[in-house]
Each structure stands twice: as C-alpha cells, then as structure tokens.
Simulated scan of single mutants.
Amino acid sequence: MNKKIAIIAVNGKAGKKIAEEAVNRGFDVTGFGRHTNDTAAQHYVKKDLFDLTKEDLAGFDAVVDAFGAFTPETLPLHTTSLMHLADLVAGTNTRLLVVGGAGSLYVDKDHTTHLSETPDFPDDFKPLATAMGEALDKLRERNDVNWIYISPAADFQADGAKTGKYILGGEELTLNPAGESVISYADYAVAMVDEIEKGTHNKERISVVKA
C-alpha cells in the first residue's frame, strides 16, 4: 500500500522538494498551503495552517511540517504552529516529521553549546535559530506525538544538486569527510522521505549532511 503523507506549507522551497521526492517514489501526497498549488503533490488543500483540524490530518501515515517564518514579528509562529500540528495528530499513529534548523545542533559532547552560540554563527540568523530551537524544546515535551525533528547541515543550499547520498547524524553537528556541514534541499528531501519510508526514529532529533 502506498504511504499517504501530508505536507504542510508545501509551496515553500523545502516542501516542494519533499513533495517531488515523495511522489517520485509512489507516495500519495496531499499538500496544504495558502496559495495555488505549484508542486508535485497529487492532492491539494488551500487552507491556512492554523485553520487545519484533526479531520484534515486524519488517516495520513505521516505529516511533514515544512512551515517557516523569517521576519521578527512572525518568529514566534515556529512554536505556535508546531504545537498546533502536534495537537492535531496527538494520540494517533500518524508520524509528525519537522523540517528543522541547524542552529540548535550541539557542537560539544556534553550538549552545552549550540551551533548558534558559537562565535562564527551569523548574527542575522541568531533570532531565527533561537525561535526554531524554542520550538524544538516544546516538541521534546510532547510524549503524545510520534515526532521526528530533522535538522539540516549548517549550509542548507536551496539550489544545491541532488546526489541521493547523505550521512545521518544525531544531536551534534556532523561534518562529512571533507570537513563540511552542507546539504542541498534535494538531498535533505531524500533523507526526509527515507525516514518516512523506512525510518525507525521516534521522539528524537536527527540531522543530515551531504556524504
């Protein structure tokens, strides 16, 4: 049976890549967004994230949260939107997979320092990293949801090439053999769909970097 997945904010750059990857693998994909569908998703529901109901997300094997907010006044939406989606799938078998950020990855074995707290982390991205980290912290408190938070590498390239290869990491910033922390949106989508298809992670954060 083909897996049924929903992608929230499917019209965003990450959402589009994930939809394309999932459809290419034979998944039954329903996209949710506020604008006209221009993605590979076979089905589309034009609806604001905060207007979604339990009924909208019922029956899916997985729900992918590809929502993003980037302006100062909208940054708190990372937490409120994620908690809303968590409420909608709470107590069900539906897995909630979150397109996360890299700033909350740890750079030490003791897990005391986040990437966003290191000297070379760009100041412009610190508010976003903080907001996404706070959303992850709230998600960690949820024992009623089958969630997986997937952080990309530090250099997350929207137009990067698809290689189909990646290294799976955990809570810590992982470098590839070339000493880089980089991944394309296309390869991130491969990792996301792999996790939906055959992954066994639950209630944990994983991370991916180009192999």
Rank of each mutant, 00 (worst) to 15 (best):
N2C: 12
N2M: 15
K4L: 04
I5G: 00
A9D: 15
A9T: 12
V10P: 09
G12F: 11
G15K: 03
E20D: 15
E20V: 08
E21N: 13
V23M: 05
G26H: 03
G26I: 08
F27A: 05
D28C: 04
V29L: 05
V29W: 02
T30I: 01
T30P: 04
T30R: 11
R34F: 01
H35D: 11
T36D: 15
D38T: 14
T39F: 00
T39P: 03
A40L: 06
A41T: 06
Q42K: 14
Y44G: 07
Y44C: 11
K46S: 09
K46G: 05
D48P: 00
E55P: 05
D56S: 03
L57A: 01
D61E: 08
D61Y: 12
A62W: 02
A62S: 10
F67N: 14
F67D: 07
G68V: 01
G68S: 07
F70L: 12
F70Y: 14
P72C: 00
P72L: 05
E73V: 14
L75K: 11
H78Y: 15
H78Q: 09
H78P: 10
H84T: 00
D87V: 01
D87P: 03
L88G: 02
L88A: 01
G91R: 02
N93E: 15
N93M: 11
L96W: 06
L96H: 09
L97E: 01
V98H: 03
V98L: 01
V99L: 02
V99E: 03
G100N: 04
G100E: 06
G103N: 01
Y106V: 04
V107N: 06
H111G: 04
S116W: 07
S116Q: 09
S116Y: 08
S116V: 04
D120Q: 12
P122G: 05
D123H: 09
D123T: 12
D123G: 07
D124I: 15
D124E: 14
F125R: 13
K126N: 03
P127G: 00
P127A: 00
L128E: 03
L128D: 00
A129I: 03
A129R: 03
T130Q: 13
A131G: 01
K138V: 05
L139T: 07
N143E: 08
N146D: 14
S151Y: 01
S151D: 06
P152W: 01
A153F: 02
A153C: 00
A153D: 00
D159L: 14
G160M: 09
G164I: 02
G164Y: 08
G164C: 10
I167V: 14
G169V: 05
G169W: 11
G169A: 04
G170Y: 13
E171L: 10
E171W: 13
E172R: 15
T174W: 08
L175N: 09
P177T: 06
A178R: 15
G179R: 10
G179Y: 12
G179F: 09
E180M: 08
E180V: 00
S181I: 01
V182W: 09
S184R: 11
Y185H: 12
A186K: 15
Y188E: 04
V190S: 07
A191H: 08
A191Y: 11
M192L: 05
E195K: 08
E195M: 04
I196W: 02
K198V: 05
G199M: 08
G199S: 07
T200H: 11
T200D: 11
H201R: 15
H201W: 12
N202L: 12
N202M: 11
K203R: 15
V208G: 03
V209W: 10
V209A: 06
A211K: 14
A211L: 14
